[in-house]
Amino acid sequence: MSRSLRVPPALARMSPRVRIGVGAAALVVVLVAGWLVWRAVGGGLVTMERSGGVAGGTVRVEVGDDGGLRIETRKHGTVRATLAADELAALRAELRSADFDHLPAHRMQPGADLQTYVVHYGGHKVTTNDVADLPGLAPLVKRLEGWIHRYDA
């Protein structure tokens, strides 16, 4: 026994081209919303955003699970690269040793012209302006900063 699909009356009055357009627009909305959510939670393997400091600029570094590297700066726009397998393996080791389960979500020290770091990894978000105060995070930030200087100099 087969059932036919009932088309809502509003769609039935539309031409096939308009129906396709409406479907395509709905798909675009869903894809954009998914991308925005992915960005908001720091999609991929790890994301770091550095802002403030004397210069006041913002830099965002994203590393995907596949080793895709994306660096965004106001000065240079977006730079993309692919990490070598050994670099990705070293990054994964540093992420494990950072022990995000025990890092504070928010640690800010008083001071002027300090840079703020926001790191997203595995559902965790750590915000600090003193990386040295979080020894587990310092090597990770140093590595990500090194890639900023290498690829976006």
Rank of each mutant, 00 (worst) to 15 (best):
S2L: 10
S2M: 12
L5G: 10
P9Q: 02
L11Q: 05
V18Q: 15
I20C: 14
G23C: 07
A25D: 07
V28W: 09
V29I: 11
V30C: 11
L31W: 06
V32D: 06
V32G: 08
V37P: 15
V37K: 11
R39I: 05
A40I: 02
V41T: 12
G44V: 00
G44A: 01
L45D: 01
M48S: 02
M48P: 05
E49P: 04
E49Q: 09
S51T: 06
S51R: 13
G53F: 02
V54A: 14
A55N: 10
A55Q: 08
A55C: 06
G57Y: 14
T58K: 12
V59H: 04
R60L: 10
R60K: 11
D65R: 09
L69D: 03
E72G: 08
T78Q: 11
A84L: 14
A84W: 07
A89H: 06
L91M: 03
L95S: 01
R96M: 07
R96A: 09
F100K: 03
F100Y: 05
D101Q: 13
L103E: 03
P104M: 03
A105W: 09
H106N: 12
M108P: 10
Q109S: 13
A112C: 04
D113I: 00
D113R: 11
T116F: 14
V118A: 13
V118Q: 14
Y121D: 01
G123R: 05
G123W: 03
H124L: 07
K125R: 15
N129E: 03
V131W: 03
L134E: 00
G136D: 00
L137Q: 05
A138C: 05
L140A: 01
L140W: 00
L140I: 01
K142G: 12
L144H: 02
E145I: 10
R150E: 12
R150I: 02
A153S: 15
